[in-house]
Structures are given as structure tokens and as C-alpha cells.
Amino acid sequence: MNYLDYVSRKISDVYSKSIVLLIIFAAWWLVGAYKLADPTILPPPSKILRTLLELAKEGDLVFHIKMSILRVIKGFLIGGTLGFVLGILMGLSKTAEKLVGPLFHAVRQVPLLGWMPLIVLWCGIGETSKVVFIAIGALYPMVLNTFEGVRGISREYLEVARVFEFKQLKLITTIILPAALPNILTGVRFSLTISWMLVVGAEIFSVSAGGLGDMIWSARDTFRMDIVIVGLIIITLIGITLSKSVKLLETYFLQWRKTSH
């Protein structure tokens, strides 16, 4: 209604959101301009921008991004699918839960990075080891969330299925999967986020040709802080995009949830 009010509120909103970032940025710029810090340790913003453009122009950046994303997709698809199946099985059947559960929870105690030396010994330092590493990371949240989703289904809905004498397949497609979908999508989001973090780790811990992790790790060898920072920014942006996209999927697929809760 009150348009001026709205505009001024918007402006102050943008101001408060960006002011701290702006100040930090200005300080960084000043440090660079007055050579207050070693430029190899803290390269000025202009240098970052130049490096970014350089990397982009030579196609290096696109190459590294492509490598990392491909690995994440492979690892996520393998680990996520496996986790989904495992979570559904454990959710549906108490026997399956008792059979696999203890092993799963024991294995889960090993910190993800702890697997790295073992994986490298078994799979070498090639593509396989990285994909396996990511798959392990993608597996856990998928299993846990899918399991929760299936187990959390209200008895009331399951009784509806019994009243209508649903067959197994129909029960799964019309009741179990839709009812567990919110949790499953949460699992997908966590899975993807972890996969994205792990691809950087995988590329650091098992020497690799290409990938954003490799890019920043090699840059460390040659003391190129500018490349490290560019890499960090790109990695962060892609990570945010990934989790935002799954969130969009969630709002799209879960419209029915609106006020029904």
C-alpha cells in the first residue's frame, strides 16, 4: 500500500545486509592498495578478479568445475541410490533393520576422511577412489532420512491402505513413498551437500588431475593464494546453488503439505 514506506524499508534492508560485507571488502581493498600485507598471502580484490577472468578465459575453470561436478554426480547417484534402497528396506522390514542396522551404525562411526587411505589402497588414486569416497558420504544421510521417513508414516494412512486392500506395490507407490517424500528429499539435500564437500576433499587427498579441489591444492604448491580464493568462492557458490535447487524441488513436490499440518 504505502509505496514509499516499502521502498525505504527495502533500502535499509539491503543496506544492513551488505554493510558488513562492504566494510570487510573495503578493508581488504585498502590493505592491498597500501601494501599493508604480503600480496602472496592476501592478494587484493583486483588481483582475484583478474585471476578469475584469466582462469575463465583459458577454460581451466570450466574444466575443473566439470570434473568436480561429474564426480559428485557419479558418487551421489551411486551412494544416494544405495542409501535410498537400504533406507526403504530397513524402514519396511524390522528384520532388515536388525540385520543391517548394527553394521551400518558401526561403519558410520568412522569419520569420512578416515576411509581415504583405505580406499586409496584398494582403488588406487584414480577416478574410482574419488567416486567411492563421495558415494560413502552420500549414503549415510540418504539411509537415515529415508528410514526415518518410512518409519514415521502415520498408522492412520496405513490403515486406509488396509481397508482398501492395497497390494504391496500400490501400498508403496501411493502411501509409503509419498508420505516419506519430505524426509527423502531432505536426505537428497544433505547427501548432495556432503558430496560436494567431499569431492573437494577427495581431490585433495588422492592426487587428481582436474577438479576444483585439485585446482586449489596445486595452487597451494605454487603459492598462488589468488587461485585458492577464486576456487573457494566458486566452490561455495556451486554448493549454495546445489542446496537451493533441491529446496526448490522440495517446494515443488511438497505443495500438498501447505497448511495440512
Binding site: 573457494l232 561455495t236 554448493g239
Partner: peptide, 19 residues
Amino acid sequence: FFRVLLQIPILGWMPFLLL
């Protein structure tokens, strides 16, 4: 600021801090 900061994957900090 912190919201952006916490979005940086932790493992990515490694080369940065090492330098």
C-alpha cells in the same frame, strides 16, 4: 556475513590455511 561464511565447505579451507 556469517551466513555466507558458513556456506564455505570446510575442507576447502585447508589449502587457504596451509598457505
